[in-house]
Write a protein that binds this DNA or RNA. Sequence first.
DNA 1: CACGGCCGTCGAATCGATTCGATCGCGAGG
DNA 2: CCTCGCGATCGAATCGATTCGACGGCCGTG
Lengths: 355, 355
Amino acid sequence: MTRPTLADVAAEAGVSVSTASLAFSGAGPIAAATRDRVLAAAARLSYAGPNPLGQQLRSGRSGIVGVVVGDRLRRSFRDPVSTQMLDGLAHALSEQSLGLLLIPSEAGEVPPLVQNAAMDAAVVVLANGPDDGVVLALTRRGIPVVSIEGEIGDDPGRPGAATANIGIDDRGGTTRMVRELLALGHRRFGVVALPYGHDRRLGAPEADGPTRAGYAHTRRRLAGIADAGVVPEVVIETPASLVEHGRSAGHQILRRADPPTAVVALSDLLASGVVLAARELGLRVPEDVSVSGFDGIELPWLAPDVLTSVHQPLADKGRLAGEAAVELAAGRPVAEVVLPVDLQVGTTTGPPPDR
Amino acid sequence: MTRPTLADVAAEAGVSVSTASLAFSGAGPIAAATRDRVLAAAARLSYAGPNPLGQQLRSGRSGIVGVVVGDRLRRSFRDPVSTQMLDGLAHALSEQSLGLLLIPSEAGEVPPLVQNAAMDAAVVVLANGPDDGVVLALTRRGIPVVSIEGEIGDDPGRPGAATANIGIDDRGGTTRMVRELLALGHRRFGVVALPYGHDRRLGAPEADGPTRAGYAHTRRRLAGIADAGVVPEVVIETPASLVEHGRSAGHQILRRADPPTAVVALSDLLASGVVLAARELGLRVPEDVSVSGFDGIELPWLAPDVLTSVHQPLADKGRLAGEAAVELAAGRPVAEVVLPVDLQVGTTTGPPPDR
DNA sequence: CACGGCCGTCGAATCGATTCGATCGCGAGG
DNA sequence: CCTCGCGATCGAATCGATTCGACGGCCGTG
């Protein structure tokens, strides 16, 4: 009662295995009558087509791209920034009939699937610097790696597989945002930062942020603030880009004596939490405090307010990552991609209050 | 410059291929000295371990479970009901070192991956009745299928692989909810329904809803309302369980002349949209209209209101589906699971207004 | 009528690993 | 000193498909 194989079908149809193979793959010449005989035999045995495992071994390719999301799925999935990117990625892959193997990875650890699973290429979201364990394990296996927001870089000294980086102009984006706020007259800034790296700390203002940050996009966005010539009065790291963390960071910042007049959050979810915190404290946005975000996602619960934010092309980022994975898997090199961002002024920023 | 194989390593170490295999798998007796020699040789060739494709062909198992989500990822991912379930599923699978192959499927179509990808089992979310194309394709390939909320059933007349159903007590849940509202004194009901099936219609009240519904969970929840002896004055189908669809359905219902005093939404996201619509129309909840949901997810943007809702164990549902997939893949049968639900009264329901 | 080409079919090698049964060698016991 | 037994190693078959080269007819043309 084992499942039938191509050999069984060939025997049933009275042809050789190679001919039966041709009937299914269509590669190579075969008489229409023969093909029909083979297909009829297959139907009789309820043979549903060639076993993919055999094909994969023969071709050496699995048709699968691993996607390592650097966090619990529950958390990643709550962030539209992840999900919109994954949506673009999934579409790019499915257009090539490639499968998307979803690999959740708790901060810092290397899941067994990264070591064992068959993949033609991998996409790593938020690699923690060039020595990220996941990236190292993959390159050691000879699997090409596309890094989204990661700066993994080809180290010529190390033997390894091809890599590619897909990112956005985080740094320029925050610089433009801060310049906008400067032009409005703001001089005293608070910053609500994304996690600095896998070793997430919580809450405390920190001086070493920009240098310690293992997450390259956090580092770049912080650097963009410095580029505008601004030294924030307070910087709060959050453990994840979620509304509630933005809310508690907002409380911390806005309850200070003589709080800043502008709060720059490094993500929209964090920014929306800051807006909620301001409302709870009886502060008007933007009359009493300006709040800016980053990403450009929809925030229906802020309505009728619209967050001033730096918009990034999330779906494009995912799509390009998928295409890069395909290219690398085919052995072709991929140039680094830095997508442009777009400052969109909403209703949450304005001139600072008169003192 | 092709990647090294086990044979290369064996040659380098001066042992046979079979011995080299033992050095990696640990199955079978091998001298420690020999194993070290093999591992040293592997390191010299930078051989990162046995090629999974070879193992998979040999063992006949791919270590992959396909998960077919019946919608665009972008939409599924916006719904915490999907994502929390997926999180539970992913964890159950990763505990068994199984991979999760994510297969998005536009309504009604059968993606190529369903036909071609290697899987030991598959989980189908929201199968559209027992003749869902995806389910048929999978069983024809001999792949065991776990259906979440789908009622796919083993048809003894049809040759096919094993199946299992994982669901919740939708029907009893809505019945209890409606009884609660009846006890409060409500007599005139509006219903905001989930999509009835892949062929989503939009907005219009329909008489044939409960029978036409291809999505079993929609049908069951509507049936639960009937079980309580209630015939709603208006039923609105929505194209997806999203806040904005709940909002527009809420507008439709609450703008009627002499609107119902209670609106039963079949999901929390829809219900929260109804609450937003009521607020926009200047109606107080629950003084002017009561609103109930289903699922029990967090709705921070309704704060300080808490939605009255039927809570279901989402993560457990995913976890059980993962475990069922493992069992089926191992050839063991799985009994149907119907998880209990839990009515939680919040602040959005109360007695109807005096007329 | 004979020969060259071409279309269709077949056999066998190959992909990379696992595993069963056989063999080899060494040590211990009779 | 011979033999038995056991642990370590090896050879070969196997998983299921693809593909290359060879072969065998058939048809058309010279």
